[in-house]
Design a protein around this nucleic acid. Structure first.
Lengths: 329, 329
DNA sequence: CTGTTAGCGCTTTCAC
DNA sequence: GTGAAAGCGCTAACAG
């Protein structure tokens, strides 16, 4: 319980190791060269003193490290920061950041005013920005000087690497599963049309449906349960012989389930319902929901790590979308 | 699009306003006194230059501000940081922190080694620690020097202010609702016994049950769905005439719902089921779950604000637990 | 009320 | 390889 005296500083370590602060710094950060002997003595001194470098001072001196990574969530209202999916991304990022002694802040990125993104990327204390649900327009505002300081969860751009779910593959999996279980008149509740990363899923659905000679039936959604409910109602009104509904977003799927139940339509007897996105509770609904699971934590961690470690980034990295077959299909 | 030249610094502002850096600092931070005229000129200069103070430098100079607030989640395994409730707390805190240019990091607080809490509280770059699901033992390790730098979501201690749900009131509400709807043999699936903040709910249940002359029926749970499932099974085996199950934690309630359905027990016909904690999807299950809603975001924001603004803190603040009556009771 | 003078703890030229 | 010295941008004494 040695918490009494003032925290050890680099100067203390240097003194104890009998070297200068500069050498101690080099030895510790293993940047620049230091003799093995010095390196050892410094390491020992640091250990004995329980020294940990002050991230604040380091950030100030290196003018660039940054003491936090900002998460900017694209959307039309400030409410987007309260989304459970965003919360998952934030928590995962906050864990990754914690290991480097940096923090995470969460911001709304108004899609009508992408300047906020630039402001964040240029803040001296921001080490990097993770953009969630970006649009090309918002990304276009990112100045070249911010290269390597911005990463996207969703679509990327020339300067912004993308870490994303393989939406196309995932959607294809779902549609093929539906086809394989005998469904032929499959409707889709899509995502909001302004969100480009959902286009791929929609395209994949169209392609798969076409290949099976079932004409596409699409209704726009917005990931909410309420919209899913209304969308399902609309689907059944426009195409009464529909035998499967594929909803982008599990909340919408649950809403659809509710709408069908009210109409006395049996799931999966009359209509199969599949979701997309792996809400933690979909195994507990009744009927349990067939959906896809996405490695959100891994995606967030990869994006954060790229920023934190200044990794050279591949332009786009896809993560698998895995089908989970349950009672609703 | 004026992002080209180097960001303005306090010195630039001071020069432009024709004052010294110290005066500019005083004028901007409204700490210490500055003449109205100086204040105005500095403010104008700052605006014209688009100046924003560098939080990193500020933190270094004030030795104490801190550039992040740490969230420490008590538990027996590192897995606790992946909890959806924790994610909600983290996101809300990250939004509050963002307004002050600070970040949030997320840590596991091993209950068998509370030293981690001390380490966090003493890190120079940490402005404050929010402890989630604390135990008295862990809190006891907090040094007096950390007063005002630690806040708890859950039980507090003499030195650690507590921000928490009124678990007792919430549980009482649920039990009284059950009694009011004619239930008399009410079982409870409790929380993990090491988590003190669930004791209050348990006590309230016991008291309410006693007052209604219904002997308490308690099974320990752990907030998971799997445990809720097994617990409900155990309840029905030990007390077959049970007509209501109150589960601490909505996941457990959903698990219980599942177990009852498998046994062919009708809900709410034979047995009513109520949850606790307001998972976002409980309105969508079938039957929809009666539960209580808790202002998690408000709680997290209050705890973070106390830390950030060095508020004088009341020792303990309770937030209401509101009953939401749905189909399951 | 305001300017001057010192740092906060670390990294980084630049000589030696 | 290593040390001395000069900051990073800001705030905190201390005189004036």
């Amino acid at each position: 319980m040695a918490g009494q005296r003032r925290k050890a500083t680099l100067a203390d370590v240097a003194r104890r190791a009998g070297v200068s602060a500069a050498t101690a710094s080099r030895a510790l950060s293993s940047r620049g060269h230091a003799s093995p002997s010095a390196r050892d003595r410094v390491a020992a001194a640091a250990r004995e003193l329980g020294y940990t470098p002050d991230p604040v001072a380091r950030a100030l001196a290196t003018r660039g490290g940054g003491t936090r990574i900002a998460i900017a969530v694209g959307g039309h209202t400030a409410h987007v920061v309260n989304d459970p999916y965003v919360a998952r991304v934030t928590a995962a990022t906050a864990v990754t950041a914690a290991a480097r002694s940096v923090g995470v802040s969460l911001h709304w990125l108004p899609l009508h005013d992408p300047a906020e993104l630039v402001r964040l990327a240029e803040s001296r204390d921001v080490g990097g920005v993770v953009v969630v649900n970006p649009t090309p327009a918002a990304l276009a505002a990112v100045p070249r000087t911010a290269r390597g300081r911005v990463a996207a969860i969703g679509v990327g751009s020339r300067d912004v690497p993308s870490f994303d779910v393989d939406n196309a593959g995932g959607a294809t999996n779902v549609v093929e599963h539906l086809l394989a279980t005998g469904r032929r008149r499959i409707a889709m509740i899509a995502g909001p049309s302004w969100l480009p990363c959902t286009h791929r899923a929609l395209t994949a659905y169209r392609r798969a449906a076409e290949a099976a000679s079932t004409p596409p039936r699409v209704v726009e959604g917005d990931f909410t349960a309420a919209r899913g409910d209304r969308a399902a109602t609309e689907v059944m009104a426009r195409w009464p012989d529909t035998d499967a509904i594929f909803a982008l977003g599990d909340l919408s799927a649950l809403g659809a389930l509710d709408a069908l139940r009210r109409k006395g339509i049996d799931v999966p007897g009359d209509v199969a319902v599949a979701g997309f996105d792996d809400l933690p509770v979909t195994s507990l609904t009744h009927p349990a929901l067939t959906t896809t699971t996405h490695p959100v934590e891994a995606i967030a961690t990869a994006a954060a790590t790229t920023l934190l470690d200044r990794h050279p980034h591949p332009p786009v990295t896809f993560y698998p979308s895995t089908l989970i077959h349950r009672a609703s299909t």
